[in-house]
Design a protein around this nucleic acid. Structure first.
Length: 513
DNA sequence: CTAGGGTTAG
């Protein structure tokens, strides 16, 4: 609930049958003095403030909403503009659903919605992922005759993309008679949001063939696609285009570049971009901290975090803490992990998400503190998910497996109860037993898998060689010289064993299945 | 009064 700030609670509807202007219930019981409608209108249509005109200024105070709604109720002969402003306010607030309710009121007793109404309304539907409502809105748009408006069409693409309906988004895009760079970016974004990164790049090439020039927003989206694909060469190319086009290094563009370089394995370039960014916010800092943590530079990540907080006075958010906790995991800093976790909850009032819990479990587990990790899980205020249990099971497999029987068995039981249909879990359990030589258990687990018809779903990875991206699956031998690849892998494992002392069990664990 | 954007573990 803390997330909702001081907004009014949803579900409040002004009864349309009530002719006499009356203040809403919540309005009457509000503690702070507020302007009374009976003393005349304090706002008119042109001065009605947009409660969310600048999201950086925090959530709007609740009376702004009540006042706006009271105004809609009391005033007669309102133009669509008044309604649109209230719908706009809600669509970018933390209660976007309310925008839809206001729209219903508008249809029931207000003027006819116009072409400005729908972009706001669809934005609200996109934010609430309300596909059914949005679909109805689209039908209404067609009836209303505003479906040829380019703003409406672009928002429709965005809406369908957000709801995971990429085909609907594509259809809207195809049927457009006129497109702008915004339309192209919207459909490219829809592909990225739906994890179809290759398709997003293809659409970009098509965009270029149609002689549209990308802008900053397009580049930001493409860079995030490169980051997800790990496609450093493409990312570099887009970076070059950013420079060649003379695009200003905005916060979003800089953050996207930092993230792309970090995800593609070039932490030095990430840091270089980060250091020349003219402006940074918590997202930029988070991207850099996560990048450093993922590259094993935990000390640097924590130093940066401290610098961000104390010197730059940037307030960390839950993503920043993901990076910080992951740095603690990689550096084996259990006590620091506890301390950061505590700060996150009690100083910054951030409610931990499952990922934060699993990072803590990972930190404890990797340090061999298996009992403690188990207790941490059972003390969590929310039920642990499969990821958390798998994290701890993984820790049981690498730490003192022979003596960890107690925790190990409890974890195995909980995991298989929670996700009995997930093949990967059985593979993990079976490998763990194999490692400590409990072969009869291995046979039992494999038996269960066979009976239930369970298989491990194929893990997917990709690697860039000579500018070409190769995507492959677990056990996939379609990539040409397979024996050669495995021989090379053996050499690499041998090298790791001799340099950092990876033990036999571990490499067997990695290579299984 | 309108459209598209960055950060999320193992």
């Amino acid at each position: 609930m803390a997330l909702y700030g001081t907004d009014p609670q949803p579900g409040y509807l002004i009864p349309s049958s009530d002719r006499k202007p009356k203040l809403p219930f919540e309005y009457r019981f509000h503690k702070t003095p507020m302007p009374l409608l009976s003393q005349g209108l304090y706002f008119n249509e042109s001065t009605l403030p947009n409660p969310c005109s600048n999201p950086d200024h925090g959530p709007p105070s609740r009376w702004v909403y009540y006042y706006a709604r009271g105004l809609l109720q009391c005033a007669l002969d309102l133009t669509p503009l008044s309604w649109n402003l209230v719908i706009r306010g809600y669509s970018s607030s933390s209660h976007p659903r309310e925008a839809v309710l206001v729209f219903h009121e508008m249809r029931a007793r207000g003027p006819s919605p116009n072409k400005f109404t729908f972009p706001f309304l669809l934005k609200a539907c996109a934010r609430t992922l309300d596909f059914e409502i949005g679909k109805q809105v689209q039908a209404y748009i067609v009836k209303n005759g505003t479906n040829s408006d380019i703003y409406v069409q672009n928002t429709l693409i965005h809406f369908y993309g957000s709801c995971g309906k990429i085909l609907d988004a594509r259809q809207v895009f195809e049927e457009m008679s006129l497109r702008t760079v915004v339309s192209w970016t919207a459909i490219i974004t829809a592909y990225v949001e739906n994890l179809q990164y290759e398709e997003s790049l293809k659409t970009f090439y098509l965009m270029r063939i149609c002689r549209f020039e990308p802008d900053q927003t397009t580049m930001v989206v493409l860079l995030s696609a490169c980051a997800e694909l790990g496609h450093l060469n493409k990312g570099r190319l887009f970076h070059a285009q950013v420079i060649a086009n003379g695009f200003a290094m905005s916060v979003q563009l800089g953050t996207a570049l930092v993230n792309m370089f970090a995800k593609c394995g070039n932490i030095d370039c990430a840091y270089r971009v980060f250091s020349i960014m003219p402006e940074r916010n918590v997202w930029s800092w988070s991207a850099m901290i996560i990048g450093l943590a993922q590259h094993g530079q935990a000390g640097e990540a924590l130093r940066l975090f401290s610098y961000m907080k104390h010197i730059k006075s940037v307030v960390p958010n839950y993503v920043t803490y993901l990076g910080v906790l992951s740095a603690c995991t990689h550096a084996g800093l259990v006590e620091d992990g506890y301390r950061f976790f505590h700060d996150m909850v009690h100083v910054h009032k951030i409610e931990p998400m499952m990922t934060h819990y699993s990072a803590m479990v990972d930190t404890l587990g990797r340090n061999g503190r298996l009992e403690e990790a188990y207790k941490f899980i059972t003390d969590m205020p929310i039920a642990a998910d499969g990821v958390v249990w798998r994290t701890l099971l993984g820790a049981c497999s690498i730490h003192d497996v022979r003596n960890a029987g107690d925790v190990r068995e409890k974890v195995r039981k909980r995991l298989l109860e929670l996700e009995p249909a997930r093949g990967e879990n059985y593979v993990m359990v079976s490998n763990m037993y194999a490692k400590i030589g409990l072969w009869e258990e291995v046979v039992k687990v494999r038996e269960v898998m066979r009976e239930e018809g369970l298989r491990k779903s194929a893990g997917e990875s990709s690697i860039e060689v000579g500018g070409l991206l190769y995507t492959f699956f677990c056990g996939d031998d379609s990539q040409g010289d397979c024996p050669h690849i495995y021989r090379l892998l053996d050499v690499l494992i041998l090298h790791m064993k001799s340099t950092i002392g990876i033990d036999e069990g571990n490499s067997a664990f990695w290579l299984s299945d």
